[in-house]
Design a protein around this nucleic acid. Structure first.
Lengths: 104, 104
DNA sequence: TTGCAATATCGTCATATCTCGATATATAAT
DNA sequence: ATTATATATCGAGATATGACGATATTGCAA
C-alpha cells in the first residue's frame, strides 16, 4: 500500500477555492452516476476526457485544473495506455477534513 | 439572539485561501494568549489595531483582510467608540465545517 | 513508418488578488 | 473648534490565476 503524504493545508484549500474544481470532486464521488457514458470500467476512476466533456471548458483548461487537484493530493491519476483515470484520494481528503476540523 | 445566515461555501473557502487570514482566525481562537498586550476586556473580541500590530502588514491591508473574513461571516465586528473588536463567529464556522464535512 | 486519439505544455490575454501609501471618515479628547 | 486616534476607502503597481488556441508529447493502431 502506498503511503500518503500529509495534506498541505494551503495547497489543498487553494485547490478547493475554485468552483470548477469542487465540482469535479463532487462528480468523482459518484462516477457511475455522473459519467454514465464512460465505457471503461470504473475500477481505476474516471477518464480525463469524460470530465472534459462534462465541464464545458477547453481541454487545456481542464488539464490544468486536474493537475491542480492532483498536486494538492485530492485526486489520484492512473495511467492506462493513452488514458488517464482519476479518482478521489479519500485518504487525503479524510486527513484534510480532520485537520481543518481541529485547526479551524 | 441574532439569526446567522448559512455560510456561502464559495465565499468562505476563498476567505480561507489566504495564509494571513487563516492566521488571524487562529489567533482569535485564544485572544488572551495571542494578544496579551490588549488592555480592553476580551468580552467583545480583539481590537483591530492589535491584530494589525501582530500581523506585519500595513493598516490598510489588514483592514481589507478583516473585511474579507467578515463578509464571509467568519468573524463578527463589534464597534465600541473608535474601536472595532473582532471575534470568531463560531456558529458560522461550525456550520461551514458541517457542510464541508458532508459535501467534500 | 504514418497517422490518430488522449493528455500536457506553451504563449497570451483578461481578470482577480495582494499590498502599499495617501487620504477620507468617524469618534474621542482637549 | 481643533486635534488626535482608529479604521475604511481609494488609486496604483505587482503578482497570481483562469481561460483559450496552438502545439508538443505519448501511446496505440494500421
Amino acid at each position: 500500500m502506498v503511503k500518503q503524504p500529509e495534506p498541505d493545508l494551503d495547497e489543498v484549500i487553494k485547490a478547493l477555492a475554485h468552483p470548477v474544481r469542487r465540482q469535479m470532486l463532487e462528480w468523482l464521488k459518484n462516477p457511475q452516476k455522473s459519467f454514465p457514458s464512460q465505457e471503461h470500467s470504473f475500477e481505476l476512476g474516471v477518464c480525463a476526457g469524460k470530465i472534459n466533456e462534462k465541464a464545458k471548458l477547453s481541454q487545456s483548461t481542464i488539464s490544468v485544473h486536474l493537475a491542480t487537484l492532483q498536486r494538492a493530493g485530492l485526486i489520484t491519476p492512473r495511467k492506462v495506455g493513452q488514458w488517464i483515470f482519476y479518482s478521489r484520494n479519500e485518504e487525503l481528503i479524510g486527513k484534510f477534513l480532520a485537520r481543518i476540523n481541529s485547526e479551524l
